[in-house]
């Protein structure tokens, strides 16, 4: 009892001192943690931007081929040139008909950059494409000599199904791109549908 009375009558303000210093210590810990987290987040953002640059580089290369007003055997290539910038593991590049996806590890956590495509693209080479068309369209491979007897919707539906798989690209190898036409015969009219093929 005397102890409590002594405590209440103690005018040396030690409890004020202890409380204020404890609050300062807690505030400092929170502040330092927040600074650390902010720095970490900024580092993560920087890594994501690096991935965006890589993904956009491939997308723009594909778009450049898609923008060409001619089709044919002209080969276009793309080389990943920013993949050795100190990643924890080699980056992984995936393509499908709808997007380009780049994946990397940052502090043991996977980070991604996904960029949607502008032009219709398929992640395989021309012989695979012609084989797929032959299988799906009664032996017609969509070349000028063997146009597909179908309509545009059916052809696009088939291509969308086959091209929706993600293909893993080898970032140390060159990526080949080619714009190729698929000829479609609808009644007596023959029209072409341009596609970009991306393969290694």
């Amino acid at each position: 009892m005397n102890t409590f009375r002594d405590l209440c009558n103690d005018r040396s303000a030690w409890i004020d001192f202890v409380l204020s210093k404890t609050a300062l210590i807690i505030a400092s810990v929170i502040l330092i943690s927040a600074s650390y987290q902010l720095a970490q987040d900024l580092g993560g953002q920087h890594m994501e931007q690096e991935l965006d640059v890589i993904a956009l580089g491939l997308k723009y290369a594909i778009d450049d081929v898609g923008s060409l007003s001619y089709t044919g055997n002209e080969g276009h290539t793309y080389t990943f040139d920013r993949v050795d910038l100190g990643w924890e593991q080699p980056i992984k590049a995936y393509v499908s008909s709808e997007y380009v996806r780049i994946e990397a590890l940052h502090q043991e956590r996977p980070i991604h950059s996904v960029v949607p495509m502008t032009f219709r693209m398929l992640p395989f080479n021309e012989s695979t494409l012609r084989n797929l068309l032959s299988i799906n369209f009664a032996g017609q491979n969509g070349s000028m000599q063997e146009p597909l007897n179908s309509d545009c919707d059916q052809v696009m539906g088939t291509l969308a199904q086959t091209g929706s798989w993600e293909i893993l690209l080898n970032t140390s190898k060159t990526v080949c791109m080619k714009k190729t036409p698929i000829y479609i015969q609808n009644n007596s009219e023959v029209s072409s549908l341009d596609l970009i093929l991306v393969y290694q």
Binding site: S97, P116, A160, L193
Partner: peptide, 8 residues
């Protein structure tokens, strides 16, 4: 529109 990706 067939030349452009479906999501566009």
């Amino acid at each position: 529109f067939a030349r452009y990706a479906d999501g566009l």
